[in-house]
Design a protein around this nucleic acid. Structure first.
Lengths: 221, 221
DNA sequence: CCGAAGTTGAGGAATAACCTCCGCTTAGTT
DNA sequence: AACTAAGCGGAGGTTATTCCTCAACTTCGG
């Protein structure tokens, strides 16, 4: 049953790389909503070529993002290396949101971690414990308010990056400002209001599912 | 040049009311993105009837919302009646966002105030000074951090109501929780971070413009 | 009972995304 | 050089979605 993947012809290989390069750009600006037609155009290649190389959008997305999500793991590791839990957590927030604002595809992929079992489960296994640890350390320190938890993170990410999307390009100050406001809201303080019941995993799934374009195109029916 | 608006036939008048009722529901759930076909369907009326009565979506939106936006003016007045500026401002935030979460059309209309000179300019003239006063009072008190201003309001509103939109119906706790987090971030405090440069009117216009479906349908061209 | 006012909903036109197909080109082997 | 399998291009079929019109029909009200 093992597919003997025979090597691509050299021109095909070159085109494959062109496609991946173009896909990087197109997905960066349009996220998972990008179309393969669009990718083809940017790659200076026919649509058919793209479909031949990546039979579905899923395949292309996996080829593009599975590795790049590891960057988030490194980021979390860097954040855990900081002596202060608060600094670690806020650095993670600022940097990851910065990355996602620049690459909307990466954002969509990151939001799928922990939601989509098919594509990004592996990264999730690495990443989620690190993030949990970031929260735990900040909680233990007393710097992070006790009534927020890891499930708040995707909500914050989704919301701020959505603002970033609507923000004129070249004005990152705006969503950064908004993020700083939220970060100040995350800080433990005597006057903090009541946040009400915590976010559940189901909430996160419902919201993220609704915020991220579907990876697989709706089949005709 | 005065149009002698002759009275509608009785059945037409009844249909007009049905349409407005249906439009209320449809716009509440879909916002300005609702289609007149949709409204017609919900009203149990042919599409043609809707187009006869309201030649454009604009006309229908105006008929629906111009009055209802006055509710926001009342709300702001109530908020100004509170002794504490902080309580007034946060009440305004909580209540208006609550209203907008329930009626997405109202949200879209409210966001257009101060952006769209054609449709809602009059309400803006009433509302904006009241809101400015809310901010001024809270600033004077020292309860609201000095580095946020009235231009932050539409950003907060747009963002939180957008979350509300993605939130499963019947779980208002989620966006409320998020709003409370932001409110705690708005409170003046010694540890507050640096928000960076303030939001400008142009920023607001660009963002809101991008967050709200266009009132006028794109003409074919 | 008639004419003006009103209604209807199928359907034309624009837009947009997905993907296939088949005639043509090219790499690379003999 | 010739041949062939691999690869390429992109027009166009298909499915949606939205906007809005129009010609045939119905109803109101004098």
């Amino acid at each position: 049953m093992t597919e003997t993947a025979r090597p691509l012809r050299r021109d095909a290989q070159r085109n494959r790389e062109r496609i991946l390069l173009a896909a990087h750009d197109v997905f960066a600006s349009r996220g998972f909503a990008a179309t393969l037609d669009d990718v083809a155009h940017h790659a200076g290649v026919g649509v058919g070529t793209v479909y031949r190389r990546f039979p579905t959008k899923e395949a292309l997305i996996e080829a593009l993002f599975v590795d790049r999500l590891e960057d988030l793991v490194s980021l979390a590791e860097d954040a855990l290396a900081l002596p202060s839990g608060w600094d670690g957590l806020t650095m993670m927030l600022r940097r990851s949101i910065g990355m996602h604002a620049v690459d909307r595809g990466l954002r969509d992929a990151a939001l799928c971690i922990g939601i989509d079992k098919n594509h990004f489960a592996k990264v999730g296994e690495h990443l989620l414990p690190l993030i949990q640890e970031l929260f735990d350390r900040a909680h233990a320190e007393g710097s992070l308010r006790a009534d927020v938890g890891i499930h708040d993170l995707p909500i914050i990410m989704a919301t701020v990056t959505d603002l970033a999307r609507h923000t004129p390009p070249g004005r990152p100050e705006i969503f950064r400002r908004f993020l700083e406001l939220i970060i100040d809201g995350l800080r433990a303080g005597p006057e903090n209001g009541d946040l009400g019941p915590a976010i559940t995993q189901e909430d996160v799934e419902a919201i993220v599912h609704d915020c991220v374009p579907p990876i697989e195109a709706r089949r005709r029916g």
